[in-house]
């Protein structure tokens, strides 16, 4: 336990605060899964874009059928694509923030199953969305930048040594 205290004590404070603020908002929306979520804007945008081809119900209701399940698959695939993009470009912190999108995808699965009155599967997805929100917080803290001195320690020591040598 003591080894965990201060484990990420050298992290960039701005990113730490951003992680906590995003966690607070996403956790509150996840804890109220039938209510508003900021990422609903992206789901509605996708529904509008594909609305000419398929008649989607969003939010899901009891009459949801295969078009809505297909729409759910499309919205669930978005965070996977983003995650691959971020990791391939070395954007660790963005990839960690993207886990909140996975939590939102799980929340959408809950919404569809809850609307169709499948209680136990819906509960599992609700718990999964909460777990992913917590994982996202920890991952964001882990992926935050360390102080630049840690990354350039050898160069700084060499520079200070040269400076001291020049003064002498």
């Amino acid at each position: 336990m003591q080894s965990l205290v201060g484990l990420y004590g050298n992290r960039n404070r701005l990113q730490v605060w951003l992680s906590l603020v995003v966690f607070t908002l996403c956790a509150w929306w996840t804890l109220n899964p039938r209510s508003f979520h900021l990422l609903d804007g992206t789901s509605i945008t996708i529904a509008l874009m594909l609305g000419a081809l398929f008649d989607f119900n969003f939010p899901f209701n009891v009459t949801s059928s295969w078009p809505d399940a297909a729409f759910l698959l499309v919205t669930v695939s978005v965070p996977f694509l983003l995650h691959v993009h971020f990791l391939r470009n070395g954007l660790k912190y963005m990839a960690a923030l993207n886990i909140y999108w996975f939590a939102y995808a799980a929340q959408n699965c809950f919404r569809l199953l809850d609307a169709k009155i499948y209680r136990w599967p819906a509960t599992l997805f609700f718990v999964l969305s909460l777990a992913l929100t917590v994982v996202a917080l920890i991952k964001c803290l882990q992926s935050s930048e360390t102080r630049f001195e840690d990354g350039f320690k050898e160069e700084i020591d060499e520079f200070e040594h040269d400076e001291n040598g020049a003064d002498l």
Binding site: V5, G6, L20, L31, L137, L141
Partner: peptide, 14 residues
């Protein structure tokens, strides 16, 4: 729930 994880995060970044 949210406050608990704020506490955990505070301990981690202490």
């Amino acid at each position: 729930f949210i406050a608990f994880w704020w506490l955990i995060a505070s301990l981690l970044v202490y």
